[in-house]
């Protein structure tokens, strides 16, 4: 794996946003993630691929400490964002999660209006000075979520009334509204139809301008389409990490090759 890091370092032009070293995750007695070392670049889309249960989502949830909400989960090792250890005692997960937004597998709009869904983050973090400010933030977020035109006339309709693809873009807009620096996406398209998937993928590509995007996907095609970097996980190990083109055309590890040619997974 060390080799990967060297090979990848030649092509990287973006500075590193997230650096993980020797990360282990345990769920109760089971060892879900083993010895993961990875550097995730800023303003890049990084895809995590691998068969089900390989630990890619678990590792993703370490990056914004969502695993804290599961009692049985225990994380060791070192994950740094901008050089700061996010598992340091002084770090408040609440502040961390404002900086590292997350979009989930199933669209999960709150049972509130579209406006309130997006305004939720800015409100709790106190990002708006007044109502006009908040309106601006909401509009900006909805525009970045590429859903503004569809909902601008019904901002006070319930978010749960939107279609699946719209809901997921609303959730992305909601995540963007807190002005995060990293966006984590956990299989954001798995509950969507192909058209909605295309819209969301297009959106992810645009989001790269401003954020470091990490996306977990079970679809290799999707990883190939949207990401610049790809990491392959297998049985809790990070098997291979590199430029997406390299992973898909010249995999170094036999397991990666088996997976992308469809023999395991």
């Amino acid at each position: 794996m060390k080799d990967n890091r060297y090979s990848e370092s030649d092509v990287t032009i973006q500075p590193v946003k997230i650096a993980a070293r020797n990360v282990q995750v345990y769920y109760g007695d089971s060892h879900a993630i083993r010895d993961v070392d990875i550097d995730i670049a800023d303003k890049t889309v990084t895809a995590f691929i691998g068969p089900s249960g390989c630990g890619k989502s678990t590792f993703l949830r370490c990056i914004n400490r969502m695993n804290d909400t599961i009692d049985a989960a225990r994380v060791t090792g070192d994950i740094r964002i901008d050089g700061e250890d996010i598992y340091d005692k002084r770090v408040d997960p609440v502040q961390l999660r404002a900086k590292v937004g997350m979009v989930f597998q199933k669209p999960n709009p709150f049972p509130k209006s579209i406006y309130d869904n997006v305004a939720y983050g800015p409100r709790i973090h106190g990002l708006a000075r007044n109502k006009a400010d908040l309106d601006d933030i909401v509009e900006q977020a909805l525009r970045r979520g590429a859903i503004w035109n569809e909902v601008k006339d019904r901002l006070h309709a319930p978010g749960t009334g939107l279609s699946g693809g719209q809901q997921q873009r609303l959730c992305i807009a909601r995540a963007v509204a807190t002005e995060p620096e990293v966006l984590l996406m956990d299989e954001p398209c798995s509950a969507l139809d192909p058209i909605a998937t295309a819209q969301v993928e297009e959106l992810i590509d645009e989001l790269r301008q401003n954020y470091s995007v990490v996306i977990v996907t079970h679809s290799m095609q999707q990883a190939a389409r949207v990401s610049q970097k790809t990491a392959f996980f297998h049985l809790g190990n990070l098997v291979e990490f590199g430029d997406t083109d390299d992973i898909f055309t010249r995999p170094q590890d036999p397991r990666t090759e088996s997976y992308i040619t469809g023999r395991i997974g």
Binding site: S9, V16, D39, G83, E181
Partner: peptide, 9 residues
């Protein structure tokens, strides 16, 4: 890390 960290925003 292999490359310098990004500037904290």
């Amino acid at each position: 890390p292999a490359a310098p960290f990004a500037d904290p925003r």
